[in-house]
Design a protein around this nucleic acid. Structure first.
Lengths: 206, 206
DNA sequence: CTTTGCGATCTACAGTGTAGAGATCTACAG
DNA sequence: CTGTAGATCTCTACACTGTAGATCGCAAAG
C-alpha cells in the first residue's frame, strides 16, 4: 500500500467519522487530500475500492488486540472489546464490515487469531471454522447494531412503544415491562453475551 | 398503509431483487409504477423513507412463522429459517435490516414472539431482552453474511488464500487445512449454530 | 537528447434526490 | 349547479454524484 493510498483512506475515514458515510464523495475526499477528484483514481480503482479500503483500515486497527494475552478466553474477549472500540471510533464506516466481504491479509490474520484461540480452548478441528463464523457474526452484528441504532431504537421509550398495541398482541412485552423499562449497560450486556458464548466453546472441549 | 405505498414498495423491492440495491432509484421505481418520479413523494417522504419501507415489508414476510408451533425451540427455529428464506428472496435489500433500525408494529410483534419463546423456555425475565438481542443479532448477521458474501468470499479457494502467507503468520489455517478445504453445507451449519444457542437458553432454565 | 510512463488536471456526461410551480381531479359546502 | 379545498400527479430545474477521456508536466531509463 502506497503512502498516497493510505492518505486517501485516512481522509475518507475522517470524513465518514465527522459527517457520515453519505458525505464520503470522491470530491470531498479529494479536497481533503488537497487534490482534484480524478487524482484519486491512480490510487483507488473506484469508489467501491475506496470503501473496501476502509474495511481494511478498520481491520488493521483491530489486529494488535489479537496477539497479547496467553489465555484463549482473554484473547477472544480482547478481540471483541477492540472490535467494539473500532465501532465506536468509526460508527458510520463500521457498517461496511458487514456489507462488504473482505479477504485482505489483515482479515485472514484476524480470523487466524480466532481459530488459534478455539484450538487452544480444545475445540475439535472440524468445529473450529463454524464456531469462528458464529462468533465473528455475533460480535460484528452486536457492534454494528450498537452504533447504528438497531438496539437503541428498539429500547428508547419502551413504554410508548408498548402503548401502541393491544395487550394481547404483545403479551411478552407487558409481562417484561419492568425489565424493559430499565436502562441498559451495554458493556455489561456484551460481557454477559461473551460469557454465554464461551460456555458454548467449553462444551466442545474433549 | 395505502395501496399506492404498498405498490411503490413492491416495485422497489422487485427492482432490488432483480438488479441490486443500487438500481433502486426514484426514477426507476416511478417508471415501474408507471408514474413520474415526483409522484412518489406524496406516498414516500424521501428515499430513506422508501428504504425503511422495504425493511418493514421484509419483516412482514417473516411474521407468519412466529405463530404456529407449540414448542418454544421449534418456534425459534421456524423464525430463524424463515428469516434465512427472506434473505434468499431479497438478498440485496436484506442488508438494510442490519443497517436501518426498525420499530414498526411488525418489528415489535416479531420481537414479542421471541420474548415469548424465551419465557416459555424458562429464561428468567431479567435475561430475556438481552438473550433476544443475542439471538436476533446472530440470526440477522448470519443470514446477511450468507447472502452478501462475507462467508463465501472467505471460503472460496482457501488453498490459494493460505498460499499468500508465511506458514507461521497463519498457523491455525495450516493446522485446519483439511477442514477448511471441505465444502460447507450452510443449512447444516445454521442448524448446528441454533443447537448451540438453544443450549445457552436451556442453561438459564430454573 | 529522446522516450516512456505515471500522476495530476480539466472538461464533460449521464444519472441522482428532490425543491417548487402548475395542472388535473375528487369531494364536499353553499 | 357553482366554488373551493385538498390531494395527486407532471414538468422543470438545481446542485451533486462517479468517472471516462484527453491533456499536460515531470522524473527515470535508454
Amino acid at each position: 500500500m502506497t503512502d498516497r493510498r493510505r492518505q486517501i483512506l485516512d481522509a475518507a475515514l475522517a470524513i465518514a467519522d465527522e459527517n457520515g458515510l453519505a458525505a464520503v464523495s470522491m470530491r470531498a475526499v479529494a479536497q481533503r487530500v488537497g487534490v482534484t477528484p480524478m487524482a484519486l483514481y491512480p490510487h483507488v480503482r473506484s469508489k467501491a475500492d475506496l470503501l473496501d479500503g476502509l474495511v481494511d483500515r478498520m481491520l488493521a486497527e483491530l489486529l494488535p488486540a489479537s496477539a497479547s494475552p496467553a489465555d484463549w478466553a482473554a484473547r477472544l474477549a480482547a478481540l471483541g472489546h477492540e472490535l467494539r472500540a473500532v465501532a465506536r471510533r468509526h460508527p458510520a464506516a463500521f457498517t461496511l464490515l458487514l456489507a462488504r466481504p473482505s479477504v485482505t491479509p489483515d482479515a485472514v490474520r484476524a480470523t487466524d487469531a480466532v481459530y488459534q484461540a478455539l484450538l487452544d480452548a480444545g475445540v475439535p478441528d472440524e468445529h473450529v471454522p463454524r464456531v469462528e463464523r458464529l462468533l465473528s457474526t455475533f460480535v460484528l452484528g452486536f457492534a454494528a447494531s450498537e452504533v447504528n441504532g438497531r438496539f437503541s431504537a428498539g429500547t428508547r421509550n419502551p413504554r410508548a412503544r408498548r402503548a401502541q398495541f393491544d395487550e394481547d398482541q404483545v403479551r411478552a412485552h407487558h409481562r417484561l415491562a419492568k425489565v424493559l423499562d430499565e436502562d441498559i449497560d451495554w458493556d455489561a450486556e456484551f460481557d454477559a453475551d461473551l460469557d454465554d458464548l464461551v460456555r458454548i466453546i467449553e462444551a466442545y472441549r474433549r
